[in-house]
Each structure stands twice: as C-alpha cells, then as structure tokens.
Design a protein around this nucleic acid. Structure first.
Lengths: 111, 111
DNA sequence: CAGGATCCGTGTTGATACTG
DNA sequence: CAGTATCAACACGGATCCTG
C-alpha cells in the first residue's frame, strides 16, 4: 500500500485505516450487521463495484473486516466486522454523533 | 468547494470537514495551543506551504479555525481553534486514543 | 451473484520560485 | 514571516466490459 511511515499521533494512524471516501461508511454499515456484497453496494449509494471490493480488501488486510465465502450456486460472500473492526467503530461513535449534531450546518457550508 | 450533498450519516458529515491528509493533524496541533504559520509548518513535517494555507483556509471557512492577523513588521498571524473546532477535537479524542493504542500494528500493516 | 481487468479523467498533492 | 502563483505528478475514484 503506502510506504512505511511513522505516525506523529494516534489520529494519523487511525486515518491510515479509515481514511478515504468510503471506509468509514462501510465500517458503519457493517457495524449494523453481516452484509453481502450486493447489500453493501446498494447501501453505499454511488459506489462502484471496483471501489467497493478495493476498500473491502484493504479493510480485510487491515484486520477490520472478515470475509466468509460460501461455495454455493449462486455464489454468496458475507462480510462482517472483526473484534478489531468493532473496536474502531466504537472509537468513531463520538465523531459520528458530532457529525449528526452539526449535519445541517456542514451541509450548508459545503453548498 | 463540493456540490451540495446529503450526508447518509454523521460520519459522512464529520469527514467532510476533517477528511484528507492534513486537517486532523492540524486540528490536533491547534488543540495544543495557539500557533503561528511557521510553527504549524514545522509541526506538520512534510507539508508544503501551499497545502498548509489551503487546509487552514478551508478550516477557517468551516468555522473550525480562527485567524488573527497582527499588522506588524515582520508580519505575524496566529491560528487557534474556535469553540466549534474544540468540540470537534473532543469528538475525535477516542479515535486518536484508538490509533495510539494500535499504532505499532497499523504501521506494520502498511509497510 | 460476486467479482476481475482495463482505461481514463480530474482533483488533490507536491516542488519551486516569487512577493508584500 | 507569511503568504501567492505556476507547473507538474500521481493517486483516487469512476465507467465499462468481462468471467467463474
């Protein structure tokens, strides 16, 4: 992925795994429960299949997401959070609450 | 900035103001105290002057940062957090603590 | 259904030089 | 000191088509 780097603070390290446009949303969605590929695609409106699988793979590599493959026809793959992923989601909750609280203000600023 | 959009959840809104490579670090640095332009540049090793001023301006626009200009020679400008910025920083604290805790693991993953 | 592979635009980031 | 301006590079994200 990226070259080895030293993080100057915890925020830096945290953003290395949840940064970008989609990962925080994926984390939140998977925190609601186990999800299949297609469910995630519909939940994150606007994401392309490429980005979805790419973000999922990176989160799997980072140990946040577990991928369970069922060898059936048609194929079925279920994604869920690991304990590590759940701990991250818990740490993001205050931030989510803050965003919820100031949602309207932020939307207006970015109009 | 970006077109008007509707945020699907609070995380989405929060990332609209602290997303990107530098803003979280700036927020954290400014939470330590008032800082001058040059101090910030030295604190965020690797940032270019252009990015620094650009991120600061956006955070100022979002109401997170206050910019105080002192008409002196040589010029002096001091940056600080607004109450809004401090509230965001508080909301990010658990995330920072999480990152601190798992720093080593994440650094290794991204090597 | 759940991906892979490829092409491609563009926003973001960076280097460098210059200014009040 | 605290910026501006300009140019260049690249990663990010998206569209489309293809496969087991």
């Amino acid at each position: 992925m990226g070259r080895q780097r030293t993080f100057v603070c915890g925020l830096d390290a945290a953003f290395a795994v949840v940064g970008g446009k989609w990962k925080a949303l994926l984390l939140w969605e998977l925190a609601q429960g186990v999800r299949r590929f297609g469910e995630l695609r519909r939940a994150l409106e606007g994401i392309s299949e490429k980005m979805l699988i790419q973000q999922l793979r990176e989160m799997e590599h980072d140990g946040l997401v577990h991928r369970e493959v069922y060898r059936e026809v048609p194929p079925r793959v279920e994604y869920s959070l690991t304990a590590f992923g759940r701990s991250l989601n818990a740490a993001m909750e205050p931030l989510g609450a803050w965003g919820d609280e100031h949602k309207a203000r932020i939307e207006e600023l970015h109009s």
